[in-house]
Amino acid sequence: MGSINPSLLHIGSTVGAVIMALMVIFIRLKASARPVTIRKIWIPPLGMSTGFAMFVVPEVRFPLWWAAIAFLVGWFIFAYPLIRTTSFEQRDGQVFAQRSKSFAFILLGLLLVRTLLHEFINRYVSVPQSGGLFFILAFGMIVHWRLFMYKRYNVIVPPETRIPQS
């Protein structure tokens, strides 16, 4: 089995990140037209958690303290703009996410920062390892953001007032 050129992996991961960012923007714009539920808040991080299976492959592994730093950077730095631009409104007894004009710009800005950091990090770690690090960073970001959304949702719709959904 031949090896893949690292520069092709880098280009592929960058193009993949751009496509994913555009998909997230499109999905978020459509999602703001539908009511928010607890299930819709928690499904993205739960679905994303399956990505931890990549660490079965030895080439992706790195020291645990690297993972902790990546997670904390995602949690404390990258989640902040998403938290600042997320707000809810109640209409007709349901909760909706308000569209933020800056959401797309923030997401593209995060992508730019990721790309610049990727260039720096790839000098010191392999492409699979940097992919794993950025996955953990993104996971920390989305878990913090969704935890914030869950807490805000509970303020708007306290658990004792919810109607069970089927």
Rank of each mutant, 00 (worst) to 15 (best):
P128M: 08
V143S: 11
R123V: 10
L82N: 03
I77T: 09
I156D: 03
L112I: 15
V155A: 11
V57I: 12
T85F: 13
F76D: 01
P128C: 10
L107F: 14
A67L: 13
W42K: 01
Q90T: 07
P158V: 01
F52Y: 15
H144P: 00
A97E: 06
L8F: 04
N122G: 06
L29T: 11
G140E: 00
G12E: 09
P81K: 13
L9C: 06
V60N: 02
F103W: 10
P159D: 10
W145I: 01
G47Q: 07
A33C: 05
P159N: 04
A79N: 11
S32R: 10
S130E: 04
G47P: 05
V24S: 10
V155R: 14
L110Q: 02
V57R: 13
T14P: 05
G51C: 06
M54Q: 15
F96P: 09
E160V: 07
M48E: 07
A31K: 04
H118C: 07
G47M: 15
F76H: 11
G140K: 12
I142T: 09
F55A: 09
A31F: 05
V73D: 02
R34M: 05
F88K: 13
I25W: 03
L46R: 02
A104M: 01
M141W: 07
T14E: 03
R123S: 09
R91Y: 00
M1I: 05
I43S: 11
W75K: 07
V143N: 10
Y150D: 04
L22N: 12
T37M: 09
S3W: 08
H144K: 14
F62E: 13
F134K: 01
E119N: 11
E119Q: 13
R28F: 14
L116P: 06
G16D: 10
H10M: 13
